[in-house]
């Protein structure tokens, strides 16, 4: 973007209710050009509702949606690629026809759409699927086709709802690498996920949503700083005296299986290495030594309390639309 400073996507105090259920309450987000943005949260927290408002499938009750520095217009959607959470393709249609059709809907000519579709199919290693009907393909393949469909018109903003769910590791990696390349090419990418590790690896910034509200957001590095990896799980045999090491703040020992919280000083991530050296030095036989990632759930529980997860189930029963249920 020539403007440089304007965020690609901006939600300003956006709210959306479905009947009695408040799906999104006063969410504000800024997604900068050339960055990858992770929208995190458990099922039912308001991720999908927020995404749907970004692309005008639903209209917010209050607040403002801005795309490319302008108030939302449908014309801007030609510059957006969208991968919905519920994958959808015409089952009886041939893959290439389908891609050309979706490309045309985004304003491409039939010929351009076909050339690009062929290029992408080669890149995603599914050329053999092109003449087939969609219903004949595996789920993973269908997902790759959906992925291609959202990128055919070379959008500047790519919005993906749970892009990695249901993919095997090899294809997940392929998708991940493609997204990283696209970011390097200057595209802004937003994706929702409930996997913290993935977000941590890929995203420049993130927002954690719970019960329709942003409870935590910012650059990934800052957020990680707030939640240091201070937990260690050890499986061992023999001497357990290493558990009295000064770096340990708290320990629970279930004879041979210890859960440890390390001391954190000024929010800096503690080093577990001295503890491992201590254990090895004392001749303890270490079966497993793992510095644990703070999982999304752990951060979540720490941030909003365990009630937040239970809330999801109750909401699911009262909500009218799936839009309200699936974040």
């Amino acid at each position: 973007m020539a403007a440089g400073f304007a965020p690609i996507v901006e939600l300003v105090d956006v709210s959306k209710s479905y009947d009695t259920k408040k799906a999104v309450r006063g969410v504000s987000l800024r997604i900068e050009p050339g960055t990858m943005f992770g929208l995190l949260g458990p099922n039912g927290s308001g991720k999908t509702s927020s995404i749907r408002m970004m692309i005008g499938i639903t209209v917010p009750d209050s607040g403002e949606v801005r795309l490319f520095g302008q108030p939302f217009t449908r014309a801007a959607l030609k510059r957006v690629g969208y991968l919905p959470e519920e994958r959808g393709l015409y089952k009886k249609m041939k893959v290439l026809d389908q891609l050309v059709f979706l490309g045309q809907l985004h304003g491409l000519s039939a010929r351009t759409a076909e050339t690009r579709a062929q290029g992408w199919c080669e890149r995603m290693e599914i050329t053999e699927a092109m003449p087939k009907k969609t219903e004949e393909l595996s789920k993973g393949m269908q997902q790759k086709i959906q992925f291609i469909a959202s990128l055919l018109h070379e959008p500047e903003l790519i919005i993906m709802d749970e892009p990695f769910s249901g993919l095997d590791p090899v294809n997940g990696k392929l998708l991940q690498d493609t997204l990283v390349e696209l970011r390097a090419a200057g595209k802004a990418i937003v994706f929702s996920t409930h996997r913290m590790d993935q977000a941590e690896k890929l995203c420049d910034s993130m927002a954690l949503i719970s019960r329709g509200e942003v409870v935590l957001s910012g650059a990934m590095r800052e957020v990680k700083g707030l939640y240091p990896r201070n937990r260690v799980e050890v499986l061992f045999e023999g001497d357990d005296s290493f558990l009295r090491h000064p770096s340990i703040a708290e320990v629970t020992n279930y004879s041979g299986h210890a859960e440890i919280r390390l001391k954190t000083v000024d929010g800096v991530e503690p080093d577990a290495q001295p503890l491992l050296a201590e254990a090895v030095g004392r001749g303890t036989r270490i079966l497993r030594f793992e510095v644990k990632e703070p999982t999304l759930e752990e951060i979540f529980i720490e941030k909003v309390g365990s009630g937040g997860l239970e809330q999801v189930e109750t909401d699911r029963r009262t909500a009218v639309t799936r839009g309200a249920v699936h974040a």
Binding site: G56, P84, L89
Partner: peptide, 12 residues
């Protein structure tokens, strides 16, 4: 088949 959501992202 959920195709409508893909379509709704571009057309009315």
């Amino acid at each position: 088949s959920r195709i409508f959501e893909v379509l709704l992202a571009t057309i009315r």
